[in-house]
């Protein structure tokens, strides 16, 4: 198969923080324009930190693994720190993705930022 790192396979097989929070502080989605796949992130903020977070992804292995990874990176971070997360941070944490799959990781960060933006507006 396309060579996925052990970390990516692990996140894909046992994704963290799957779901949709009810009445979240922030909710955001992003789509990969080339395939139409998409990720939605919902989160709660308390004391300036991301206190709860959940994702749903319709997409490939890379899309699911990076969404799972980004929720793990964001959870517990100050909102500014979560906002500063870059696609490269997700890729590094996953030990890289196949080159033709790197674009699929952008969606995870896009959805996180959209959710954070939504939270700022709302709270």
């Amino acid at each position: 198969m396309r060579v996925y790192s052990d970390a990516a396979k692990e996140h894909f097989t046992n994704p963290r923080n799957v779901g949709t929070l009810s009445e979240p502080d922030g909710k955001g989605s992003d789509a990969n324009p080339s395939c139409g796949d998409r990720t939605t992130i919902t989160l709660r903020v308390s004391s300036g930190r991301v206190s709860e977070i959940a994702f749903r992804t319709f997409g490939c292995t890379a899309a699911i693994a990076s969404a799972s990874q980004v929720t793990e990176l964001a959870l517990g971070r100050p909102v500014d720190g979560a906002w500063a997360l870059e696609p490269a941070d997700v890729l590094n944490a996953l030990g890289g993705l196949p080159p033709d799959k790197e674009a699929c990781a952008l969606m995870a960060v896009g959805a996180l930022r959209a959710a954070l933006l939504d939270a700022r507006v709302r709270t």
Partner: peptide
């Protein structure tokens, strides 16, 4: 396809996964 591969099965999908998009 990837999930089944990890479980020990070689299968395919009609969706041709090319250059990052499916």
């Amino acid at each position: 396809v990837v999930a089944l591969d990890l479980a020990g099965f070689a299968v395919s999908s009609g969706s041709a996964c090319t250059s990052g998009s499916t």
